[in-house]
Simulated assay, not measured.
Amino acid sequence: MEQHYLNSSFREKLIEHSLISELLKISWKNKSCSIEISKPEVDNQGYDLIMEDLGMIRHVQLKTSHIGSSTSKQKVHIALANKPSGCMVWVYFNEATLELGPFLFFGNNPNEQLPSIVDFPIAKHSKGNAEGVKNERPSIRIISKSKFEVINTIEELYQRLFEFV
């Protein structure tokens, strides 16, 4: 599927908007119509979206992978841990239909900070410097897939984001 590689930025936005749409539908079906979703003007604090519903605010870092992807880890900015309810949502999608799910979640209950990531491995730059050395990125940590909680449906993800478990 060459299109996925050539248009990866387009695909990433499409998945983000699909996720937002699905969360809005749940708020509609719940008859609350109360979810609010915002985007930061600058992406330097480790999150892509701010979501609020049921009195809970979430700063969410989004990651995406197609079902069957061999990706086994994700990178996160340490600033996400400073947000009151920071979390990561890793969205899997069907490569042919772009249907969403399952989802992986790394975080705590609403109003609880991200689990500690200070001891997680420090990421390195993907490209080497002039000498070919890949320098460390001290503000970025690597989280293995095994640290994420599996969430099968969008309804379960909504509950995980905005309700205490």
Rank of each mutant, 00 (worst) to 15 (best):
G86H: 03
K31V: 09
I142E: 15
L23P: 02
M56I: 14
I57E: 11
G86F: 09
E16A: 09
I67T: 08
K73D: 10
K134H: 10
Q3P: 07
R11N: 15
P110R: 03
L98M: 09
P110G: 08
N82S: 07
I140G: 05
K127I: 06
Y92N: 03
S144R: 14
I37S: 02
K13Y: 04
R58S: 04
P138L: 05
C33T: 13
P102T: 06
N30S: 09
Y47R: 02
P110I: 09
K39G: 02
L157E: 10
H4Y: 14
L157I: 13
P102D: 02
V150E: 13
E2D: 15
S34Q: 09
F162R: 03
I151R: 07
T153K: 08
C87R: 06
I151C: 12
L14F: 08
N135Y: 01
F120A: 05
I151E: 12
S32C: 15
I15L: 02
N152R: 15
P110T: 10
F10K: 15
I50M: 03
N135P: 00
E149H: 12
V118R: 15
E112F: 00
N111F: 02
E2C: 15
P102L: 05
K31M: 07
R141F: 07
M51S: 06
N129R: 01
C33K: 12
H59P: 00
K31T: 09
Q45N: 09
H66S: 06
E131Y: 04
F105S: 03
S85Q: 03
V133C: 09
G55D: 06
F93W: 07
L49K: 11
L14R: 10
L24T: 10
I37R: 02
K75Q: 13
A130G: 11
F10A: 15
N135C: 04
I122T: 08
Q61R: 04
E99L: 08
Y92I: 04
S70I: 14
S8Q: 10
G68P: 00
L80T: 02
S65R: 02
I57C: 07
L24A: 12
A123H: 04
T97V: 06
Q45V: 02
S9C: 07
V89G: 01
L19C: 08
E16D: 10
E36G: 05
A96W: 14
Q113A: 13
Q61P: 10
D48V: 01
L114M: 12
I140M: 12
S65Y: 00
K13E: 13
A96Q: 13
N7Y: 08
L104I: 05
V133L: 14
M88R: 03
Y92K: 01
H66A: 08
F106Y: 07
I143D: 05
I122S: 06
S139Q: 14
R141P: 00
L100W: 12
K127F: 01
N94A: 06
